[in-house]
Each structure stands twice: as C-alpha cells, then as structure tokens.
Amino acid sequence: MKLNSFKNEITDRLGGNCADIVYNFFQSNPDMLESAGEIRIRAGLPLSVSCRNTNYYVSSSGLKASAEKAYRPTKYEINSIFTRICRNSLYAFKEDIKCGFVTLPGGHRVGIAGKILPDGAIYEVSSLNIRISREIKNCSLKILRHIIRNRYDVYNTLIISPPVCGKTTIIRDIARILGTGNEEPDFAGVNVGLIDERSEIAACYQGIPTNDVGLMTDVYDSCPKDKGILMMIRTMAPKIIITDEIGGSGDADVISCAMNAGVRIIATAHGYSFDDMQVRQEIKEMIRNGVFERYITLSNRHGPATIEEVRGGTT
C-alpha cells in the first residue's frame, strides 16, 4: 500500500491527533506500511501498530516508543474518530455498529469496542482496531491450482484459516481470477457471484466495487450470506459463488441449495485445522454431506497464506 492511498483511505477518514501520529509513523518507516496489519487505538492506552505479528507502540511524534512514552489517546478523541469514521451519520451505520465494525473505503475494517446497549448498539466507544486491507494481485495462484478442476470448472472449496492470515485478500484474488480468466493455471473466466457481507472483499462504495474482483463478478454488498446466496442464484445465474466466513446458523442449508442449483461454492471459515471444523455444527454437517470437495488450510508460518494442508483429492 502506498503512503498516499493510506492517507486517502485511512488517516484522512480518522482525522485528529491519532491520524497525524500514525501517518508520521509510516512516513518515517515506509517499509513497515507494506506489512502493516492493524492499528489499535484504545482510550488511555498506548497507540500501537502491528507489522508482521510484532506490535510497535508509537509516540506523539510518530516514532517507535516504549509503552510508557507512547501516545495515549483520550476517550473523547476516540469518540470523535468514531463519529468521523461513520461520516457523522451514525444512523446510517447503525446495523454495522451493532455487528461491531464499520468498513472504510478501500475495505479497511474498523472493529469497535465499548459500552454495549441492550439492543446490541455500541456507544461510548473505548477501542478501535483498524485492519488494513490490501489488494495483492496473483497472491492466490498457488491455492488456485488446488481449486481449478478444468478450464471451465472449479471444485467446491472451503479455505480454513486463522485470523490475520490473509483469508480475505486470498478470496478477493480468487474472485478476480475466476471472474476474469487466467493463463497459468488455465481458467476461462466465468460469471462469479460474490457475497460480501462485511464489505471487505470488494470494498463497495455506493454499490460499486473499489477493489478489482473480476470482469464477470457480481457483488452483493453488506448482504447476509443466507439471503445473498439465494438471491444470487435466482437473479444473476452465477457459475461460482464466493463468500467469506461461513459457519453461521442456516449456512449449511443455503449452501446445499446452491449446490442443488449446480453452482460451485468457494468459501472461507475461521479455524486452525480441518479438525477444528469438526466441532462447528454447521460446517460439520456440510463435511458429513460431502458439500466440499477440497479443504485448504492456511497459516501464517512462512508469511500470510502459507498452505498447510490440502484435503480431498490430488491435483
């Protein structure tokens, strides 16, 4: 990610002291911006940035510092940032806030923590976690070799990965390649339906994807998976449906429905191994019914998206 894009997509939206400090930090450490994963802003606690699984505290002058000397944002500052992230229109983000996150243009997800009201809405925000999203083209080529069946077809695949291992970046690139076509591995390019429940994959702005998700890809933005998959099958006739983080109640039924309609599914799930999936009711049911033909487990062992295991046939 370039410093300019970082400024336009993240720090300009945050505003205030924290934005200036983080911008100065990456300006003086541009190489760290390439690998930056998260920016954590907590009330009364040190401002920190994580790069390659290492946490760095940042001083008010934008330099690496010890926890004692790091900049500590106030609660008022965090609430101001929160209001600005929501474009001063908290009402428009109410449902996202209830889910605990707001997505910035560019697909950067801002996790929110604080006092929770009985209806699930968060007010009096005390922590923000900005997860920096990045588009890495062709990062999924190694994985695609296990997913592509032939020039026109793919295997139903579940990508299993722990958090911060590049699941979303991988699935974005898979959508781009399958929806555009590719030479090696050879794929013709088909109609892809992308269900982007958290607006992270396509990072739609006013309904239009801001990330490249393929020339033949249709996107349902901020749409629940269960509704989105059915709507996509009925209206957009995709050959492949791609979605993130399955495992919620009702996911098994709706994915079976898609399979019955002859649509291929590529999905991701949180987990550290195939065995982890056996304890999750919805996914266990899908495994038992043979919904997926491939299970690809990723880790962060040799950098993001390291392939740990591929189950279900050889390629």
Partner: peptide, 8 residues
C-alpha cells in the same frame, strides 16, 4: 446535537 444521534 440532534443530528449527531445514532437512532433515527
């Protein structure tokens, strides 16, 4: 104040 409310 009114415009800053989260509840429509």
């Amino acid at each position: 104040n009114c415009l800053s409310l989260a509840d429509k």
